[in-house]
């Protein structure tokens, strides 16, 4: 049991307070799944959907797709591909950084360099 379904339902219901188009039926239609399936997902009666559906659902709800995919207990395909390309390097990097505080991780993020212009 993951928190995926209840989280989706909580976000969708908050959005629906301001916009009635966030009903189960209409969200399901826009994401391309059956309303009954979305309802089951929200109640945790079925496993989280595929990565592609999860990403569409995240975008529909205005959430970060990476966070939603992780909440669904998965690692996105593009991240898997990045790791597979240089497995030793990325495995070591992730292990080294696993306990690092957020500020330290942010320093590893690559900045867009500003030059002379």
């Amino acid at each position: 049991m993951t928190h995926f379904g209840p989280t989706v339902r909580g976000i969708r219901e908050r959005l629906r307070e301001d916009d009635r188009s966030y009903s189960v039926r209409q969200v399901a239609r826009r994401v391309g799944i059956e309303p009954a399936y979305l309802s089951k997902i929200e109640r945790g009666e079925v496993a989280p959907p595929s990565e592609a559906t999860t990403v569409r659902l995240a975008k529909e709800l205005g959430e970060d797709p990476d966070v939603m995919v992780a909440l669904a207990g998965k690692v996105s395909a593009d991240l898997q591909a990045i790791i597979r390309k240089r497995p030793r390097l990325f495995a070591e990097l992730i292990r080294q950084l696993k306990e690092a505080p957020d500020e330290a991780l942010l320093r590893v993020v690559r900045e867009v360099r500003d030059g002379n212009w």
């Binding site: 867009v112 360099r113 500003d114 030059g115 002379n116 212009w117």
Partner: peptide, 15 residues
């Protein structure tokens, strides 16, 4: 892609 771009562009940085 700096090596494929003119020198003056490299000084700018950015995207």
């Amino acid at each position: 892609y700096a090596e494929r771009l003119p020198e003056s562009w490299r000084e700018r940085g950015g995207v």
